[in-house]
Design a protein around this nucleic acid. Structure first.
Length: 219
DNA sequence: TTAGGGTTAG
């Protein structure tokens, strides 16, 4: 860009750094981050969050948490996205307790957690076998008026099927439909698999036999 | 203008 006579700005650098993180070239991403600082460009909250995501991707929970603190010290108040990135990292590495600690911290600081954050925690809880805890968190999510999204429903269907609670899983499908959402093929496959494992192959065969929505074909 | 999340089995 300099060769073209155009000055890059923070967004240019952030976009490049993000590209490197996405391409799993984290050390190059950090080098570019350092380079932009050396050149006098000021990273912003988003630049910091991109680095945070890189740390999360490489599974370095300790550095991710420390980097979150560093952001605060430098005056970049972490928002829901920054917190969510670290919470997800902790969840994926089995550090549910630490994740819940950050979760309450974010609420105490006046942030409203969104579906992304609830889903990360719910997923971790279900996978760790903390079904009761997951149930409580789901209730909190509903009470807080956070809409369940396709990710939430997928976590619930998966968890119920793994527990052999197929009727409950099917019930989730009905709930989704009432919200105007259609389960995707992976969700159906999970249900089919669950029925097959219970020896209910004929049930499995008819799982997709729902009345199709024909409104767009009625001219 | 730039940032975060999930799943099947074969």
């Amino acid at each position: 860009m300099l060769k073209l006579g155009v000055e890059p700005n923070v967004v240019t650098f952030s976009t490049l750094i993000n590209g490197l993180v996405k391409a799993s070239k984290f050390s190059l991403a950090v080098s570019l981050f350092d380079e932009m600082v050396e050149k006098g460009y000021q990273p912003d909250l988003i630049t910091y969050s991109i680095i945070l995501n890189g740390l999360s991707k490489i599974g370095d929970t300790g550095r991710a948490v420390r980097f979150l603190r560093l952001m605060e010290e430098r005056g970049f108040k972490p928002n829901v996205v920054a917190y969510g990135t670290v919470i997800d990292c902790l969840c994926k590495n089995g550090l549910l307790k630490e994740a819940l600690h950050l979760f309450s911290e974010l609420k105490v600081k006046g942030n409203r957690p969104n579906a992304v954050i609830y889903n990360c925690l719910l997923y971790a809880m279900c996978n760790l076998g903390h079904q009761e805890e997951a149930r409580r968190l789901l209730n909190e999510m509903i009470d807080s008026n956070i809409s369940l999204d396709i990710f939430t429903y997928s976590i619930l269907i998966d968890a119920y099927c793994k527990e052999g609670m197929i009727l409950e899983a099917i019930d989730i499908v009905h709930t989704m439909r009432k919200q105007g959402m259609e389960p995707n093929v992976v969700m159906y496959n999970i249900l089919v698999d669950a029925y097959c494992k219970e020896g209910m192959v004929s049930k499995a065969e008819h799982i997709g036999d729902q009345p199709p929505i024909m409104s767009h074909t009625t001219f």
